[in-house]
Simulated scan of single mutants.
Amino acid sequence: MKGKFVVIEGLEGAGKSSAIANVITHLQAKGIETEAVREPGGTPLAESLRDLVKKKWDETLVPTTELLLMYASRVQLVENVIKPHLMNGTWVIGDRHDLSSRAYQGGGRQLGDELLQKLRGLTLGSFYPDLTILLDVDEEVGLERARERGELDRIEEEDLAFFKRTRQAYLNIAAKDPSIFVIDANQPMLKVHKAILRTLEENLF
Rank of each mutant, 00 (worst) to 15 (best):
L45A: 14
G121S: 08
R120W: 04
K30R: 15
G121P: 01
E33G: 11
N203E: 02
K30M: 14
V192C: 05
L131S: 12
R147L: 08
T90N: 05
D153N: 14
N203G: 05
G112R: 01
G150D: 11
A46Q: 03
K164S: 13
L69A: 12
S179V: 06
L171E: 07
E66I: 12
T60Q: 12
N22V: 00
S179T: 15
A185S: 12
A29H: 15
P129G: 01
L124D: 09
S73D: 02
Q28D: 12
G107H: 03
V23P: 11
R167E: 05
L160Q: 10
L197Q: 14
R109C: 13
G108T: 06
E144A: 15
V37F: 03
E33R: 15
H97A: 08
A169V: 00
L134G: 06
T90Y: 03
D136S: 14
G3A: 08
Q168N: 15
M70H: 02
R167Q: 11
I133H: 05
L134W: 05
T34M: 06
Q76G: 04
P40V: 06
T43E: 04
I133E: 07
Y128L: 06
A175E: 13
T123G: 01
P44Y: 02
A146C: 10
W91E: 01
S179H: 13
Q105S: 12
G106W: 01
I196L: 08
L171P: 00
K194L: 09
G125W: 11
G3K: 01
P188K: 11
E35Y: 12
D138E: 15
H97T: 02
Q117C: 05
E12V: 02
I196F: 03
G106D: 08
H193L: 12
D130W: 01
S18A: 09
R74A: 10
L197W: 02
S101V: 02
R198T: 15
P178N: 15
V141H: 05
G112V: 03
A169Y: 03
V78L: 13
L143V: 04
D58V: 10
K191R: 13
L52P: 01
H97L: 08
T199A: 10
K30G: 14
L69P: 00
N203P: 13
K54W: 06
L77V: 08
E158G: 06
K4Y: 01
D153A: 09
N186D: 15
S179M: 08
P63E: 02
E59Q: 13
L122Q: 12
G10S: 08
L134A: 06
G125R: 12
E9H: 03
E144N: 14
N172I: 05
G94H: 00
G15I: 07
G142R: 05
E12F: 07
L204E: 12
G107A: 07
F205Q: 09
M189P: 00
I82N: 00
L52M: 15
V23F: 01
K83T: 07
D95W: 01
